[in-house]
Design a protein around this nucleic acid. Structure first.
Lengths: 341, 341
DNA sequence: TCAATTTGCTAATACGATTCAGCAACGCGC
DNA sequence: GCGCGTTGCTGAATCGTATTAGCAAATTGA
């Protein structure tokens, strides 16, 4: 199989020095001052012999590892990709590896996942969810530094990274208000979750700041599906004084809204303006017209999570235990100016 | 940090046996016949003391690891999720861990990724791409068993798992033919890639098998975007004898097709039938009407890849070096019966 | 009853690194 | 010519497990 024979001892013999010296040189330890000539000799020997460090041995001997664990619901959503992407990116740049374990539906699965990761000697843990919510963290996760991404625990015991739902909702409504709309409808995502509450709160605040009475805007409760967007839009537009703009709680709702609007013979981005939320990569930029929406910063959250985790692993004190990542607007073509054309 | 003190030696002392015995018991080695009583005593001691095996030490001592490496373009596409999901699932069930390394755009990045994975002592490698194509495998990947997923090398040196594009194209056209359509248009994905060639080939075969002359069906070259689907559909429908059904090379093309059709005042799934390809999770089931499409079996490919890799790692001979995974149709509501209503 | 086998364990070594303690040689100041 | 600091290394212990070889006691077979 792998003819992996060449170890530090081999390199040491070839270079005519001790294993210790090889270790120092290959790890670039400057405190043991090895002269340039020896250094070169060792490096060259290592290269020529095809020396490859053994991470397992290194982890064992040094009592620290280059592995971080990521527990995530890999099964459910395309969002997971982005968190993984960000986390992976950040970890890779620090020379760390991400071990991914599946978060399960069944009770106790998370605990098992964490246990398995701990066996692998991970130096720290990230627990990530695909939708922003409160979770209960498995007990054993406390054995190592642990950061929550896109979720939080009831006691606030763990540092966590969450999206700024309120700010995002504010931005969405602001885009519409600044385009001159004063009658703005809203179709929410599932009732009671942080996304719904935060986005709605932000929207109302933005309306107020732009001199619009939030009580005047009609809000219909959706459930995050395209269907609910379709029916919600029909409901909004069949009112006596229908809105000229709709803030859809997510992109899929916006997708349904598009269909309802087109069926009524109206044009999105002209007769009715739409703003979504999430910025789903394979959806929003491909809708017709392209959807103006608010991005969920999954990748940034993944990166921030790993970066925070790294600080904790290194033992540096952390100042901010609850980090909120902004949700940036993505301006495309689904919003029209209103009333002052 | 972690008070991780309890080792096999500790358990051994507590149970009043040797380390060897503990090792045998905890690893369930039956050839060394340890009586039930001792076994229980050791297991209980281990549990009470919170013993947790050290994977690094185990890997070092046993000269084999429970890690498999996955090199993938994590950055680009939601498809990567599914491969990871399948691979992860399969690996997890075998007690293995997946180490994921990013495949880079820059030349030599893959080699670096592989090198890093080899340092981690992975027992095998999977190289996966987000779109089906030929690749050149980094030289160092040959140090361990290696399987290609959704790609292949020119020489066929590595076992590979690819989707059955031809079968998928066949299924797509068959769905339309069986619904009574005889004038079927096609909008392709990017010219020259396996997806385009395979799907088109399969389509023509299906038409022939259903007594339709493939030369009669108009094919327009797209590039995989919704825009190309939009314009391609306009082109097809503005012909003298426009098709009653369109096989779209992928779901995004179908998305553009929907828009073009609706703009013409026609109804998808009634006036014009549409079949897509890919079955993008957040797209196809949410379109209106829901899109009938052919699924790309990424998850299965990931699973098959790991499973094949495992066989190779264990040294069992493999019979099938080039595995093709079927692309199953997902029947939804975008296809109408034609001509015999 | 004695040899042979089985049962139930243990001692010792190995895996491939890291790391601590220390040592020989050399230069330097006085 | 002595003490001292620096330079340039090395030896040995250690990490936590797996594994081979083997041993004492108990059991079995004849």
């Amino acid at each position: 199989m792998s003819q992996q024979a060449v170890t530090m001892a081999d390199v040491a013999k070839a270079a005519g020095v001790s294993r210790t010296t090889v270790s120092f040189v290959l790890n670039g330890r400057s405190e043991a001052n090895i002269p340039e000539t020896t250094r070169l000799r060792i490096n060259q020997a290592a290269r020529e012999m095809g020396y490859r460090p053994n991470a397992a041995a290194r982890a064992l001997a040094s009592r620290r590892s280059t592995w971080l664990g990521l527990v995530t619901e890999i099964a459910t959503s395309p969002f997971a990709t982005d968190v993984i992407k960000g986390a992976q990116h950040s970890a890779w740049n620090d020379g760390n590896f991400l071990l991914i374990a599946p978060s399960g539906d069944e009770l106790g699965m998370d605990e098992l996942a964490v246990e398995k990761l701990l066996e692998q000697q991970v130096g720290g843990l990230i627990i990530a969810t695909t939708w922003h919510r409160q979770i209960t963290v498995p007990e054993n996760a406390k054995s190592v530094p642990c950061v929550l991404v896109n979720c939080f625990d009831a006691e606030g015991e763990f540092p966590s990274i969450v999206p700024d739902e309120v700010g995002g909702g504010y931005a969405a409504a602001q885009i519409l208000a600044q385009a001159g709309h004063t009658n703005i409808g809203h179709i929410t995502v599932t009732q009671g979750i942080p996304a719904q509450i935060g986005r709605q709160t932000g929207m109302k605040q933005a309306l107020r700041d732009h001199g619009i009475n939030p009580e005047d805007s009609k809000i219909v409760a959706g459930d995050g599906t395209a269907d609910s967007g379709y029916h919600g839009t029909q409901e909004l537009l069949s009112q006596p004084d229908p809105p000229t703009a709709i803030f859809c709680g997510n992109d899929r709702i916006a997708m349904g809204a598009y269909d309802a609007i087109k069926e009524l013979g109206l044009q999105v981005g002209k007769d009715i303006s739409i703003v979504g939320f999430d910025d789903q990569e394979i959806l929003a930029p491909h809708m017709r017209p392209k959807l103006t929406t608010i991005a969920l910063p999954f990748e940034e959250m993944g990166m921030a999570g790993v970066s925070l985790l790294n600080q904790m692993v290194e033992g540096s004190p952390i100042e901010n235990r609850q980090i909120t990542i902004g949700c940036p607007p993505r301006i495309r073509s689904s919003v029209a100016m209103h009333g002052r054309r």
